[in-house]
Simulated assay, not measured.
Amino acid sequence: MPGLDPELSLEGLDDVPPLSPLQPISDEEAVQIIAGPPLPPSSVTLRDYVDHSETLRKLVLLGVDLSKIEKHPDAANLLLRLDFEKDIKQMLLFLKDLGIEDTQLGPFLTKNYAIFSEDLENLKTRVAYLQSKNFSKADIAQMVRNAPFLLSFSVERLDNRLGFFQKELELSVKKTRDLVIRLPRLLTGSLEPVKENLKVFQLELGFQQNEIQHMITKIPKMLTANKRKLTETFDYVHNVMRVPHHLMVRFPQVFNTRLFKVKERHLFLAYLGRAQYDPTKPNYISLDKLVSVPDGIFCEGMAKASVQDFEKFLKTL
């Protein structure tokens, strides 16, 4: 500090008068002052602040997409207050230790930049809770990558969610664990669509509890799928294609397929006289393969026609 006696005791620092910003300086001192670009008084984009913020610069280098973050009104206030070394570095080390790769940090933080407002010890406690429920380190890393907000929820919330799915679906502990590993959004999203879909399966579509259990353990997304999509798919497959409940239970992938694709293939098979979905009869077409194989295999193996024939037929629809 200019003018400060190096031998001055710490006790006497408060008595040193501050340097006035109006105090004259020499020409030699003036030319040594490097002035940075002025901080924008207001801005609609975080990129205007990157040149002024080491934190933002380093986040951009990590792959954080500021154009997505700035859509949240609280984002700028949070990020511009953070010090990289003090507030961010330890969080990055925690995420890397958790299993988030360097290339995944940017996309993760773009979605959950608010994790920097979390207490690190709370995050470690939530990880410890999941480990106590026999989720492996690899399982937890996969869950956090696929559901970036997972660790932003309390232990009580996580425990209640696991209990809900185990009870409502009558699943074993292992099957409950497997379910949320495959679709960790079940622990972070609203339960209303889940409750609604469970009612739809049972009351509107006529599936039994054990059938619902079997289907959702194979295709967890059925729990959060759009209700209208579920009912329209069921109506077409059951009432038009004449596929019974028990075959849909065996091949629930049909509920995870776009309905127009199911319709196109069924109509082509019907046109050829090959729309036969009963496994007890000749020329059986598996519902699973109908919706999962590429066009070439569908045409050659099931329709016994060429892809060109299929494409010509689609133009008539």
Rank of each mutant, 00 (worst) to 15 (best):
D5G: 12
P6S: 12
S9D: 13
G12L: 13
G12H: 14
G12C: 12
L13F: 14
Q23H: 13
A35N: 14
P37K: 14
S42V: 11
S43M: 03
T45Q: 12
L46Q: 07
D48W: 04
T55I: 01
K58E: 12
G63Y: 06
D65L: 11
I69K: 13
K71D: 10
H72D: 15
D83N: 15
K89H: 15
Q90W: 10
Q90Y: 11
L93R: 13
L95Q: 02
L95P: 11
K96G: 04
L98F: 06
I100P: 01
I100A: 05
T103N: 13
Q104C: 06
N112Q: 07
Y113E: 08
D119W: 09
T125A: 15
R126W: 06
S132M: 06
S136N: 10
K137M: 12
A138Y: 09
Q142P: 00
V144E: 08
A147E: 09
D159H: 15
R161D: 01
Q166N: 14
Q166R: 15
V173K: 15
K175P: 07
T176C: 13
I181R: 11
I181S: 10
P184W: 02
L187P: 09
L187H: 00
S190K: 05
L191V: 01
P193L: 06
P193M: 05
K195N: 05
V200L: 11
F201I: 00
L203Y: 15
L205A: 06
G206L: 02
E211H: 01
E211C: 02
E211T: 02
I212M: 08
Q213N: 04
M215D: 02
T217F: 03
N226A: 07
R228D: 14
L230T: 07
L230Q: 11
L230V: 09
T231N: 10
F234S: 13
F234H: 14
Y236P: 04
V237N: 10
V240D: 12
V240I: 15
M241C: 11
V243N: 09
L247S: 09
R250Y: 06
F255Y: 06
F260E: 07
L267W: 04
L267K: 02
L269H: 00
G273S: 02
R274T: 01
A275V: 02
A275D: 08
Y277K: 05
D278C: 05
D278Q: 03
D278S: 05
P279I: 01
K281W: 04
K281A: 02
I285H: 00
I285N: 02
S286V: 00
L287H: 00
V291G: 01
P294I: 08
P294C: 06
F298Y: 08
M302H: 05
A303S: 05
A305M: 03
A305G: 11
S306N: 03
Q308E: 15
E311Y: 06
K315G: 05
K315A: 03
